[in-house]
């Protein structure tokens, strides 16, 4: 079965991103496909590579990046939500005249249409949020 996932909260403050990760891992283990994970609202904060949690804590951003590279998952950060919250890739930083970017490996910034398209293409759409 093909899944599309929406994550509406950032890491650490809410459990949403952790639950979504556990769900994705279990789904992949059962032989399902995770077609896309769309990060919206504060969920875009899952996609900054400047995340440095204490060593005894999990690194949620890296977990997403690792999962995406191992299973070819499309991690999409909503551009409108990202701009509000300071998540940038190199192209967007250039366009906005900002001197740096922080998008994490395996994540890409794109529009809300990707969320709708995910819902159309996938067999199941799940939302994790607050």
């Amino acid at each position: 079965m093909k899944y599309s996932i929406m994550v509406n909260e950032g890491p650490y403050t809410h459990q949403a991103s952790d639950t979504a990760l556990h769900f994705c891992k279990a789904a992949l283990e059962a032989g399902h496909e995770i077609f896309r994970v769309f990060f919206y609202h504060d969920g875009v904060n899952n996609g900054t590579r400047f995340t440095v949690p204490p060593q005894d804590d999990r690194n949620i951003q890296q977990e997403w990046s690792k999962l995406a590279s191992a299973h070819d998952i499309d991690l999409v950060v909503c551009i409108a939500a990202a701009q509000r919250r300071g998540i940038m890739d190199a192209d967007e930083a250039k366009r906005q005249g900002i001197d740096g970017n922080n998008i994490a490996p395996g994540f890409r910034i794109s529009g809300l249409g990707q969320l709708i398209e995910g819902g159309i293409i996938a067999d199941r759409q799940l939302v994790f949020g607050d």
Partner: peptide, 19 residues
Amino acid sequence: TVYALESLEVVLIGAAFEQ
């Protein structure tokens, strides 16, 4: 909270997909 506003933004974009 921002949820109402950002929900509306999805609805407007989604309208283009003719669902």
